[in-house]
């Protein structure tokens, strides 16, 4: 087991009567890509802010690089690169000025930062945009710049809160590719997301969060193995008939989830089950056999879908 960078026990955050984070335990190892997966309001961002030493816990313990953020906030923040959910780039400055001044906030030398800027612009694929104001950048470019900015201080841990929310598919893939490179060179990543594909792509290990609690923990594959079946058969009979047909389906499949628009059937062999359904003359309007995903894990654990 490699060095533990972040360790939380019974971590709790309350705002008045509302418990945003409810006694959670987790550890993040050096070089690991750790994910917090859950719907909006699950407590992911609050957890991130506590790790980033910009929010104080109500109870429990947490150490980041062996230190308590309550006593060593600035020292912990010096180790971190933070990519917030909403871009907060300096709109009055250009791309390279944004990188420069952010380094200055850490107290870094001008020469060091100027050299670093070349490297970061190349990484973010923004060389041609270095002297333009950030307002003119596309959403994907802004995100890449925010990530580059977080890297200016050569952090030990990069914190990414919903890194691709609001981006189009192409911009997401470019961003994933960049983050994958960071992972390859051993940067520890902590990522929150409500996209299961993102969690599957980027996270070595993740916790599934719902209503402030951790519901499950493991690698994407482990989670799917433990909490779901190998395959999923999705059938649709039209929204009126779904309810009517469900009981007869239950007879041939022990695990089902009925969603408003479709029925999910969890089995080892989806094709065989579909054949069985057709043999019984229950003709679905559409059917699809697919592998289980983290979405199914979440559905299994909470009875709800990730994106509502």
């Amino acid at each position: 087991m490699s060095e533990t960078l972040i360790s939380a026990r019974g971590l709790t955050k309350r705002y008045g009567d509302f418990t945003a984070v409810d006694a959670i335990d987790f550890d993040v190892a050096k070089g690991e890509s750790f994910g917090l997966l859950g719907p909006n309001g699950a407590g992911k961002s609050t957890t991130m802010r506590i790790i980033a030493a910009t929010s104080q816990r109500t109870s429990g313990t947490i150490t980041i690089l062996g230190r308590d953020p309550e006593e060593h906030g600035p020292q912990i923040r010096a180790h971190l690169g933070v990519v917030p959910q909403q871009d907060n780039l300096d709109t009055e400055l250009t791309v390279s000025e944004n990188l420069f001044i952010y380094g200055r906030y850490f107290g870094l030398g001008k020469k060091f930062i100027r050299n670093k800027i070349y490297e970061l612009l190349e990484f973010a694929q923004l060389e041609e945009k270095r002297d333009v104001k950030v307002d003119t950048l596309s959403g994907g470019m802004k995100r890449r710049l925010t990530i580059a900015r977080a890297l200016v201080s050569e952090p030990d841990i990069l914190m990414l809160d919903e890194p691709t929310t609001g981006l189009d598919p192409q911009a997401r893939h470019i961003l994933w590719d960049r983050l994958f490179r960071l992972k390859e060179i051993g940067v520890t990543l902590v990522i929150t997301t409500h996209f299961m594909d993102e969690a599957e792509q980027l996270c070595d290990r993740l916790v599934v969060m719902d209503k402030g609690k951790i519901m499950a923990e493991g690698s994407p594959l482990e989670l799917i193995k433990t909490h779901s079946t190998k395959e999923v058969l999705e059938v649709r009979f039209g929204s009126d008939r779904n309810k009517e047909i469900a009981p007869s389906l239950r007879a041939i499949c022990s695990r089902m989830e009925e969603l408003p628009d479709r029925i999910l059937m969890y089995v080892e062999d989806g094709e065989a089950l579909l054949e069985e359904i057709l043999n019984r003359k229950l003709h679905p309007t559409t059917s699809l056999v697919r592998r289980s995903s983290l979405e199914d894990v979440f559905l299994r654990l909470t009875g709800r879908t990730l994106i509502e």
Binding site: E71, Q75, H79, R104, Y105, F106, G107, E154
Partner: peptide, 24 residues
Amino acid sequence: NAVAIADARANRTGHQIYAGRARA
């Protein structure tokens, strides 16, 4: 580096609210 710079102030009073870098 950023860590050394922050650590140098760790024992000062008020280091949580002031990093001595208003000039940035």
